[in-house]
Design a protein around this nucleic acid. Structure first.
Length: 320
DNA sequence: AAAGGACCCAACCGCGTGACA
DNA sequence: GTGTCACGCGGTTGGGTCCTT
């Protein structure tokens, strides 16, 4: 299957957008929504391809775009998320309201990458670099990998929900971040977790995560998580066990919390899988997600306070 | 003040993939 | 099952701006 051109480029304008073009695009989208990007330029009276219009809108003209320099908190968050997700800018951007993937990509390539290098941190591995300039190689523990995969899948799902709810007619409400987690919880991923039974692992061999993600466009994730998710669920719940208070008080649930794979061996995880998975299944299912309300702040601070694979980047960044 | 290098960032390019006929 | 369309994503580019000499 050959790649099809995004549009017939004959007579189409390229290069910087003029204020007049911006005005045409904004006016049209405000009135009709973007609909099909391919047909939008013609309908809006623009001599641009749909792709160009989409990029201009998503990266610049969207009313919820947050302009101006990144704050220190945002930069820290980008570094932390990059340690988990790598160069998956869209997934990272989904965690920074008002910031675009392009903006974050530029921030990373122009500022953060260099800053980490200057501090002796490998920007790809987020580990201290050996004197020769290469990162000190330490094999990621299964726990680390599993949590990273879970975090990736979670962020992907969240990004998708975010996109779905980002129809123009909605006035871009400023929702508390916890609402996003509530949406996740109510989404297919959360649904799968709520319905998941331990025996499913044995009989089906597929995790709730992979079940949930298999129906999404992010199926490529499910292929990965399917192999590992029993461990993932174990590690997820194991850590949760350390922070979950059953008396109805607040509890922490955050993957970054468990990024230190050295804290538990894989055999420990195997042994505790039944108990911990049960704990996971015992999670509140009545939409009481108050325990996640401090999640965002947790993102911004937790990895820096703990010994995690992120701690090298965070520590160096904090002291920069 | 001028020249040239460094930096920044908006925009483009090409690929991967889901949806659909 | 296959081909096409449409879209989103990550990588790259190039022109404008800033900084240094």
């Amino acid at each position: 299957m050959g790649r099809t051109p995004c549009c017939d480029k004959k007579g189409l304008k390229k290069g910087p957008w003029t204020p007049e073009e911006d005005e045409l695009l904004v006016t049209y989208i405000k009135k009709h929504g973007h609909g099909s990007w391919r047909s939008l330029p013609k309908l809006a009276g623009l001599l641009r391809c749909g792709k160009s219009c989409r990029l201009r809108w998503t990266n610049y003209l969207r009313p919820d775009i947050k302009r101006g320099p990144f704050t220190l908190e945002e930069e820290k968050l980008v570094i932390q998320l990059h340690a988990i997700l790598g160069n998956r800018w869209a997934a990272i951007a989904s965690q920074l309201p008002g910031r675009t993937d392009n903006e974050i990509k530029n921030l990373w390539n122009t500022h953060l990458k260099k800053r980490l290098l200057c501090m002796g941190i490998d920007p790809q591995t987020h580990k201290p670099m050996a004197p020769c300039g290469t990162a000190i190689k330490a094999p990621a523990s299964p726990t680390t990998r599993h949590m990273a995969q879970w975090e990736s899948a979670r962020l992907e799902a969240e990004a998708r929900l975010s996109r779905e709810s980002e129809l123009f007619h909605t006035p871009f409400p400023k929702k508390p971040e916890s609402d996003q987690f509530l949406r996740i919880w109510n989404s297919e991923a959360g649904e799968a977790f709520r319905k998941f039974k331990p025996q499913d692992i044995k009989t089906v061999g597929q995790s709730p995560i992979s079940q949930a993600s298999s129906s999404t466009k992010y199926g490529s994730f499910s292929a990965t998580t399917a192999d590992t998710s029993p461990h993932l669920a174990g590690s997820f719940a194991t850590e949760n066990n350390q922070n979950y208070e059953t008396e109805g008080r607040s509890c922490r649930l955050h993957p970054l919390h468990v990024m230190d794979g050295s804290s538990s061996s894989s055999s420990d995880l195997e042994d505790s899988t039944d108990n911990t998975l049960q704990l996971l299944l015992d999670f509140p299912v009545n939409n009481d997600m108050s325990f996640l309300e401090d999640n965002v702040e947790y993102y911004a601070t937790s990895a820096c306070q703990q010994q995690s694979p992120l701690s090298a980047s965070c520590e160096a960044f904090r002291n920069f």
